[in-house]
């Protein structure tokens, strides 16, 4: 039997397709209200999808750090760095203006901000100001708390164009992922078991699938069965 290999491949699962549709709609919107939010529990692939999109479309991506909690300067400097500004200003106002200039130049590409819910509300106001003054779309990515964080500020929530929730992976996504990344056609009951046990978490599905492929190679079998699936599920960690 030919050895089965797990090839790392970005698969267009349902959440990714929804994400792309949301960005396309956001890009078509004009004027004020160019904020969007992507929420969902950990392990659903929000960050990975946003990073994939940002890297392939020359967009800025900023991951918020807790250390910026007490000052906005760190946040603005990180934004400047991501927008390709070579000389990063050392003052808040000049960093804000530099970021604004860079946003005006970059031609309306979306900016992704991750985990802004970790920071005080003032940082959200900064994002609103930048979005209003430059008309650049901003996509905020976070866990479920992000929604309530945004709703607390009416001016922000009012400008939010769309809220996309990353749902649990579907059965079809599991089958598609196995086929595209490992070239394995999962039998219905195996796919169902993997899907049920992973509880919609993308990371767990990936881990289970790698284990399953290893077991198939060790046993020299080209098709997985229920027994192998159970062993794979038992082997990989859940979190």
């Amino acid at each position: 039997m030919k050895e089965i290999r797990f090839f790392p491949k970005f698969v267009n699962v349902r959440n990714v397709r929804n994400f792309q549709a949301m960005i396309d709609a956001l890009m078509m919107s004009a004027g004020e209200g160019r904020l969007a939010a992507v929420i969902g529990p950990a392990g659903r692939g929000k960050t990975r999808t946003a990073q994939w999109y940002a890297a392939n479309n020359r967009c800025a991506f900023v991951r918020c750090l807790s250390i910026w909690r007490h000052t906005e300067l760190g946040f603005l400097q990180a934004l400047c760095r991501e927008l390709g500004i070579k000389t990063i200003p050392h003052r808040k106002d000049s960093a804000f203006l530099a970021a604004l200039d860079a946003l005006n130049i970059q031609g309306g590409r979306p900016v992704f901000i991750e985990e802004i819910e970790k920071l005080p509300r003032l940082h959200l106001e900064l994002v609103r100001d930048l979005s209003d003054l430059s008309a650049a779309p901003f996509v905020l990515i976070g866990e479920d708390e992000l929604q309530s964080h945004m709703q607390q500020v009416t001016r922000i929530w009012n400008r939010t164009f769309q809220l996309l929730e990353f749902e649990a992976l579907g059965l079809g996504d599991v089958v598609m992922f196995a086929r595209e990344s490992a070239g394995v056609d999962l039998p219905a009951e195996v796919a169902e078991t993997l899907h049920r046990e992973a509880k919609g978490c993308f990371r767990v599905i990936k881990r289970d699938l790698i284990s399953l492929v290893n077991i198939m190679n060790a046993k020299g079998k080209p098709e997985p069965d229920m027994e192998m699936a159970k062993v794979a599920i038992k082997q990989s960690l859940r979190g």
Binding site: F7, P8, F10, Q51, F61
Partner: peptide, 18 residues
Amino acid sequence: RLLKMRRRVTVDDLVELA
């Protein structure tokens, strides 16, 4: 861009996302 975003990458990350 991926390297700058993630700060640490594996070869698999680059293969998958780029």
